[in-house]
């Protein structure tokens, strides 16, 4: 089970400025807040903690380059629509 002991899943960084595929220590990886998602534009990269195959791990959107991705936001677990 991937990362099943969790305890040490490092804090996910959330949105990541475009063009920076860097380590947390690198200063140019600044926080992004403005709405930047537009059709025809690069999808804003981010890192998030996730439940994957029963375990926990951090996932980065840019890990999926080379594949199609459907990113589905929804209001909350235990809702019914």
């Amino acid at each position: 089970m991937p990362g099943s002991d969790d305890g040490c899943v490092s804090a996910a960084r959330g949105p990541i400025a475009a063009g920076t595929r860097a380590t947390p220590a690198q200063a140019e990886e600044r926080e992004v807040r403005a709405v930047t998602a537009r059709v025809g534009a690069q999808a804003p990269d981010f890192e998030a903690s996730a439940l994957v195959a029963g375990g926990f791990k951090n996932i980065r959107l840019s890990d999926y380059l080379g594949h199609w991705v459907v990113l589905c936001f929804y209001p909350g677990d235990f809702t019914f629509v």
Binding site: Y64, V69, V70, C72
Partner: peptide, 8 residues
């Protein structure tokens, strides 16, 4: 070849 990522 579509991966799904859900987010809440």
């Amino acid at each position: 070849d579509v991966e799904v990522l859900s987010v809440s």
